[in-house]
């Protein structure tokens, strides 16, 4: 049975030790199969919010206190393995995510932690690498890949766990146009829900059904992509610009 809401966040607040509130009373939900863009200026709390979805920042560990639900499962200490199996997290810097010596070992890392049989692990690695267009890269060293390739290997590592939701932190940063286009194509084919934190607003227009605008740790606006990103006054107020695709010619 598919949950109505892939992601539900209700009045989530979070502060890193010794600093101001990074997230302040944030509430939203994402439907199954929906692609949502998370936009906002630097330091708005986008990465912090994404880390809550994967339980990497579990401030509330008991069921009664949690503010985050994934496929209607509350994110608690007990549910973390299940939550992490459902949410695939792509980190901003691929060097943080590629920690194994070879592409094969790195992509196999998640499936091995799922205790899958060896043949199934191999099959998932092959399929994931095929999905990101890197078949034949299995024995390549993770250190000797271009940035675009490293991002795609990271994504293959995420795909290999077969998540139902993708949480992507700046997936397009520092990519050249071809690598960016390839990545957009891969994400468009993903059947599940996605939440994409990015500064690349033109990609948001192309990829996302809906947008959440975060600034100063608060959710300032939420709505259809063109309505939010096309609102020049709103965008300017929060240190953003109307993307080129939506600017009047």
């Amino acid at each position: 049975m598919t949950a109505a809401n892939a992601v539900r966040v209700d009045r989530l607040s979070f502060r890193y030790p010794g600093s101001a509130l990074t997230l302040n009373d944030v509430s939203f939900s994402i439907a199954s199969g929906e692609i949502v863009g998370l936009v906002g200026p630097s330091g708005a709390g986008k990465s912090t919010l994404l880390q809550h979805l994967n339980g990497l920042l579990p401030t509330r560990l008991s069921e009664s206190e949690t503010n985050t639900w994934i496929d209607d499962i509350p994110v608690t200490r007990a549910s973390l393995p299940d939550v992490r199996r459902r949410v695939g997290f792509l980190f901003q810097d691929p060097d943080d995510q590629l920690f194994c010596p070879t592409v094969f070992e790195d992509v196999a890392f998640g499936p091995l932690n799922l205790n899958l049989p060896d043949d199934e692990v191999r099959r998932r690695v092959q399929e994931s690498l095929l999905a990101v267009g890197l078949s034949g890269y299995e024995s390549r060293s993770t250190m000797r890949l271009s940035l675009g390739e490293r991002k795609r290997v990271c994504l293959a590592g995420v795909f290999a766990c077969q998540p139902s939701i993708l949480a992507l932190d700046e997936p397009f940063s520092s990519l050249d146009p071809r690598a960016r286009r390839t990545l957009i194509g891969i994400l468009k084919k993903f059947p599940g829900s996605q939440i994409v934190a990015t500064h690349d607003l033109d990609v948001v227009v192309e990829l996302c059904h809906r947008v959440l605008l975060l600034d100063g740790g608060q959710l300032r606006a939420s709505g259809l992509t063109n309505d939010i990103l096309g609102n020049a006054a709103l965008m300017e107020r929060h240190g953003l610009e109307v993307p080129l695709r939506l600017q009047p010619r």
């Binding site: 992490r84 997290f89 980190f91 998640g110 590592g157």
Partner: peptide, 9 residues
């Protein structure tokens, strides 16, 4: 964090 996100325990 990246290791935990992929199920490392």
């Amino acid at each position: 964090g990246a290791m935990m996100a992929r199920g490392w325990q």
